[in-house]
Amino acid sequence: MSWLGNSSLTIAAIIGGSIVLALLGAFFGLLYRGIDRKLAAHMQGRIGPPIIQPFRDVRKLLAKESIIPDGGVSWLFQACPFIGLVASILLLTYIPVFGPGALLEGYGDLILILYLLIIPSLALVVGGFASSSPFATVGAQREMVIMMSYEFPLVVAIIAIAWRISHVTDINPFIFSTVAQYPIWNQVGPVGVAGSLILLFTLLVVTPGEVAKVPFDIAEAETEIAGGLLVEYSGRNLALFYLADTIKAFAMVSLVVALFFPYNLSPVIGIGAAAPAFVVDALFFLLKVFLVMFISVTLIRTAMARFKISQASYIYIMAMTLIGLVGLILLHVDMIV
């Protein structure tokens, strides 16, 4: 089922739906960022900024002067924030958000998501190199290393789930509606549940790397390399990257929710009518996103200090990949016994 209820989407519906999704994504992305900052402050014994602070930050950045460095590649430097933002919004159109299926359901699957997830990071890298600052160059190189590192465990987790679901049904297991129709927890026995939990853990550790949060924010480390990739960005360009970052965080957490918790509340409490069911499911979805974001972003970033780039890379390539493969093996063992 798609957002608009029919399979033949017109161009106008896609454009309109994308705009609505972009606005909703920006709103909830910034809202969750505010909640994250508030909770992190409380956990450190501080009062913290008001929850609407990220909105104020973006408004302020839009009012500021946008400086383009003299030595930089001007057009690339200015294009990258837009590319990052558009790619982040594009993610939202393929990932099912707010309960029902994705806007472009059927036009792209999990494999496409894997590629789309790279583009915002890639925009950051290119923007960093284009700004000609040595700090940004170091940041861009670190971002590339971490990008290549978390890709492997991320793919292992997604492929493992799709592979297990492909043994239950003949429908393409990489489509979100299939994942939602056959939730992984309902298809497996006790061993498989253990394997799925391990895969969930892998994905929860990949998330802070994907959205560049402590302990994996080595590319933007303020205390070491002065903001890293973003060091030369100011004003509107920085605001666009800020927005892209919050939207990507929202999309990434939505992806975890769509893969592991594709349950809806409305069938359980027995609401049949379309409109109230949508509201209930949307609220339930926001709750699920909050829980996943709290565990994988807020809790981890408050509890831990920043890794070195070699440590972060090792954790992803060796430790998390192995842990993910153990989860995959457990899923396989579950089918044999």
Binding site: A41, Q44, G45, R46, P50, Q53, E222, E232, Y233
Partner: peptide
């Protein structure tokens, strides 16, 4: 630090003068 908590006024220390007000 928690005792004074500058961040509750929305202030933040940033690492680059390009980001600063």
């Amino acid at each position: 630090t928690p005792r004074y908590d500058l961040e509750r006024f929305g202030m933040m220390l940033v690492g680059s003068p390009r980001h600063a007000d």
